[in-house]
Amino acid sequence: MAKIIVVTSGKGGVGKTTTSAAISTGLAMRGHKTVVIDFDVGLRNLDLIMGCERRVVYDFVNVIKGESTLNQALIKDKRTEGLYILPASQTRDKDALVRDGVEKILNELAKDFEYIVCDSPAGIEQGALMALYFADIAIVVTNPEVSSVRDSDRILGILQSKSRRAEQSLEPIQEHLLLTRYNPIRVANGEMLSVSDVEDILAIPLLGVIPESEAVLKASNQGTPVILDAETQVGQAYNDAVDRLLGKDVAHRFLEEEKKSFFKRLLGGK
């Protein structure tokens, strides 16, 4: 049975697409056949982050409307074996994502894939609601910042009342908190909410903490999922998060300011 994971947040710009790209790549790297779907109709971006923007021919809405087959729209990732991308449409109206159509495609994908990762758009409109409706697992991407935390709480309320699992009184969606753009130095200075502050407020299990880093912009510039930069802290933090998602018990890292050694300081190393 395929697992459907929604990457959601409410607020925009917190790192949903970066996370969707990283988590789906991480799952495929571990041998799980995975498809990642861009639900942001009108504002397609996952293709750019995954580096396959020039290979998009058909999209999610084309498949829903029967204008192409699912296989025609799926893009096979060139770097990671067992990873496919279903891009969002750019021009169609937002209401093109009808529930029956989305369900049909998810059911079809579930026959072939172990994991279906749904990259949600920001907001709580149709696209976001469709991305989370069928989910089994939710990754709530949150920045340590007031508006993001509040919006995440809003999204948690929606997961608990408007999803398929809620409506059909099934076992609730498994919720996970992924704290991104975390800056341990600012936390130590009392300028940023800490991991435990956010955990206290949202009260859901912590999947991972992704440090704020230049590596994310660098990876998106190149169209490479940042998880592939295994030597960076961000890459390692995402790899840990994927391991935890698969049930491994991995200690959290990068929560505290790295103590620079005297020589590192002298050499200006990071």
Binding site: V146, V149, G190, E191, L193, D197
Partner: peptide, 9 residues
């Protein structure tokens, strides 16, 4: 300011 943020939230 982080403590204020937490309290308000």
């Amino acid at each position: 300011s982080a403590a204020r943020a937490k309290e308000r939230l």
